[in-house]
Design a protein around this nucleic acid. Structure first.
Lengths: 225, 225
DNA sequence: ACAAAAGTGTTCGACCTACACCCATGG
DNA sequence: CCATGGGTGTAGGTCGAACACTTTTGT
């Protein structure tokens, strides 16, 4: 309509990179997956893109991320965090869109309840197709951040049920990082970090020695001194 | 005019926390300063606020940060990096503003050329007054990020002239972190990092042993293997 | 010669890595 | 009793903090 206006409007969107752990279709190893949404409008009609939408005036940024997440996948994230804001002038043809991008982790039990719809599909995170806009770059950023942060922060707990064994937690780290970790050293690091505490119970029914169960330790942000 | 419209527009601004090093007015120790702009309109008329402005449709995010920086202080940053995006619904009374915030470092020589205007004033970073909007919180975030990042990244080079002594560079670290560092250990860490290289010359005219001069090493982003 | 900063060497402890070894259970 | 993963112990290497010590200049 008014394409001759000098100062065109900048529109603001919130998108989210959602990670979940599922077995790889070929190898069977648990790996990172993420949901993508098929675009039903130009530009990039038919291409896969990150779930997201325009920011509503009454909504906080994180709330917007949660909402599109619920709308597209029906999931509630166990962890949600702002990643970066992308605003290159030419990242969307014709119009100008600035995207504030969040990244999220969902628990496996939550993951199982995901809604199946034809326009939403899950992909192995390292094997996403060519996406709309600059979304491939965004996924790469999110993967880098996740892999960096899991080494110095207890976010892996967001990938694990309320009670878990250290082997499970190690499996999460191994799946995210894509390499094996020494069980003995992993145990010591985690326990020294104080982010988990034993429940006192053990997991039975395993084929061998019953492992101890742990839960997330209550956040103690007291400064000793 | 149309305040009854259901979906009000969200406006998008880019602001910047600019850091420079100057001597403290009382102690004389070099500390962090930052420029603030006095608001000449409601809301928060008369209060100090971060330099910034609305994002223009033809401008990248970082370019917008650079522009408002040049307009308000006349400075060019030696380092510019996105900090975070702030979008709480109530962060601005009446209207809805999302701010994408950058942080910047300026060299001392650049700093000296700063333009003096009545509506721009520099403050000691740890002694800023009560600011407009959520800008105190933003300044705190920026300070945290700067202090964290200087320990694992060579950004301190952005605070130092082309040729410098290791004592100068150490002074930058000490000013930012607010504590003394061991000269011997600092030297080894910096040299092991490979981010600086000796010019071969020494600084003369000091009252004692002439220190070697260094410059920033050319960025070698080659992957060995 | 002396003060003071530049620069080198050394020791200590924390932590990470690798790997040997014992423990407990289901088959 | 044996295979297998759970869990503990330990030796070697890296790295940073602390600090003694040598070097080099101006005064």
């Amino acid at each position: 309509m008014s394409s001759s206006v000098v100062t065109e409007q900048v529109s603001l969107a919130v998108s989210t990179v959602v990670f979940a752990l599922r077995p790889h279709p070929r190898t069977g190893e648990t790996t990172l997956w993420l949901p993508l949404v098929r675009r039903i409008r130009e530009p990039y009609e038919g291409r896969w893109a990150l779930p997201g939408g325009p920011l509503k005036a009454h909504q906080d940024l994180a709330a917007s991320a949660r909402e599109t997440l619920a709308d597209t996948t029906g999931l509630e994230p166990a962890h949600l965090e702002q990643l970066y804001s992308f605003g290159a002038v030419d990242r969307s043809p014709a119009d100008r869109v600035v995207s504030i991008v969040y990244w999220a982790l969902v628990r496996p039990d939550e993951d199982a309840r995901t809604t199946e719809t034809p326009n939403v599909e899950w992909f192995v995170a390292d094997e996403v197709p060519q996406l709309a806009f600059d979304h491939n770059e965004i996924v790469r950023h999110a993967l880098d951040r996740l892999r960096a942060k899991i080494t110095y922060s207890p976010i892996a707990l967001a990938f694990v049920p309320d009670e878990f064994t250290l082997a499970e937690l190690r499996g999460v780290h191994e799946a995210v990082l894509g390499r094996c970790l020494d069980p003995a050293n992993f145990r010591r690091q985690v326990l020294a970090g104080g982010t988990v505490e034993p429940t006192g119970t053990h997991l039975t029914g395993t084929s061998h020695r019953p492992p101890a169960l742990y839960r997330a330790a209550p956040r103690e942000q007291e400064k000793s001194r």
